[in-house]
Amino acid sequence: MNAGAFAAALLDRTAPCPPGLRSWNGSAVAQRFAVYRNNFAVSLVEALADSFPVLRELVGAAFFRTLADAYVRRVPPRSPALAWYGADFPDFVAAFPAASGVPYLADVARLEYVRILAFHAADAAPLPAAALAAALRKPEQLPALRLQLHPSIAVLASPFAVVSLWAAHQGLTAIAAVDPFRPECALVARCGDSVEVTAIPSAAVRFIAALQAGAVLGEAVAQAASPSASFDPAACLGLLIGRQLLAGPAGQQGGSP
């Protein structure tokens, strides 16, 4: 068998049925081959529908199926582990001409994808409260303190109301009440078995991104502030501590294992 020809005919719906196939009763092999061709596309479209449920509701099931089918053929999976399939689906959505009238779709898809990453991210024990209390007893070392974030944390800054749009599809608000063109920033993190999405200020996004990039506390606070937006480190740290999103151990500069 030429597996290459079989594979090519799975990907390209206009390609002829691969050679060398037969049926016991002389029935059309092309129709039988279609079972494989359809299952390849439909199973992956379904996987994307599971990963991007809000996007699917936003555009409707029929439009989503067409969009996802086009993506599956353009960017089929490269790995058998499908949990992360669709990493660049948001970019594909952004470039999809028929969706250009709804410019926030790609960022909603980015939020949904980040939720998947958070859901499957590595586990980490929360930083014990005692460790923070200990850090507080040596204030002169606080600027050099290196805080580790929970591996599931992600932040997303968007010119669109991604958190509100997402929340509206969880039955939390009415979609008609959402102004999609209001910028919003999201904090995404796993808490127990579910992934939480929380609206946070843009300065908090910069702070968390700086910590993720390895900045020490003093630098991260400095990077968070901008001329247009003040940063409230107490509120942001309070959020991270309250949600147990700081991971242990906290060491001084260079002190992480």
């Binding site: 507080l136 606080l142 600027p143 303190l145 506390l217 003093g218 606070v221 107490a234």
Partner: peptide, 11 residues
């Protein structure tokens, strides 16, 4: 960079 005192207050 933020001062140690400000950070202590915030934390």
């Amino acid at each position: 960079p933020a001062s140690a005192a400000a950070l202590a207050l915030a934390l």
